[in-house]
Design a protein around this nucleic acid. Structure first.
Lengths: 143, 143
DNA sequence: ATGGACCCTGGAGTTACTACAGGGTCAAGA
DNA sequence: TCTTGACCCTGTAGTAACTCCAGGGTCCAT
């Protein structure tokens, strides 16, 4: 395989992705089909690494593939009328901020648990459910 | 339905959860089976609201049900030997912090896009993929 | 007493992977 | 040169976490 070019297995290792998942992303159009070697092996370049890393991270943050696709479209052709882009960007900004807030509450409680553990040898009380309960600005509920 | 008690539809609305999903969580043991009315309707109380809200939020943050289950177990019986609990808590603390870092980079780029849009009428350039690419401490890859 | 909104169970469909089965490619070593 | 083990190919089937639908019962406001 030519220098700079990666086999599917190498790409998988670099990005923490299963080989089957990479082929799946190609099939559904999330990743562009790469060049092939003489022996019909897929051959990836650095932009594939970046794109796949992005996809995997956004998925790991709980966004569906549909959202990933919208973000990739934005990156692929950013010179589109602003109205189209704006609602998308603002909506996602909103969701990102909600997730950050939830994760911070989760982190604080996990932190507390870790310290409590180290002191008493037992956890004794765990408020992890309360950390992400109603009252903390409800987010997506209640009419 | 007695005061304080909710039908499955009401619980769904309160927590932003589909009725079918609630029944699914009951079947796989994430939510305890609630009391039934004379007419065989499920009847939920306030602890169900809190528990389900927690489950939905943790899922929305990209954690699998297996992790949700582990967290719920921790909440249900926190008085367990610390060694057991510690690895779990620290591992999750780690993941939570990685997610927060990724979300903050995503937020910064979305923010930039929103402002760029408002100024030029076009987005012109979008670095959203770069925001979650390698280099930014790789996270879960590279041997 | 009846029509519409809501509930029940059980089973099929969807999304996003994940794991084979059956076979070809390739580099290293006997 | 030949072989053998690691890796690749396509295609299909299985899994996780929902989501939808069919066929039927409950509830209550008119």
């Amino acid at each position: 395989m030519a220098k700079q070019e990666l086999s599917i297995g190498a790409l998988g290792k670099l990005t923490g992705t299963k080989v089957e998942t990479i082929r799946f992303y190609e099939k559904i159009g999330i990743l562009p089909a790469p060049a092939r070697t003489a022996g019909n092996y897929r051959s990836y370049g650095h932009d594939h690494v970046r794109r796949l890393t992005f996809v995997r991270r956004v998925r790991d943050l709980g966004f569906p593939l549909e959202t990933v696709r919208a973000m990739l479209d934005l990156a692929d052709q950013p010179d589109r009328p602003c109205g189209e882009v704006d609602a998308l960007v603002l909506g996602q900004l909103n969701e990102v901020e909600r997730k950050i807030a939830d994760l911070e509450r989760l982190r604080d409680e996990l932190d507390r648990l870790a310290h409590q553990c180290r002191r008493g040898g037992r956890v004794a009380e765990c408020r992890i459910i309360e950390a992400l309960s109603p009252h903390h600005e409800d987010g997506h509920c209640c009419p």
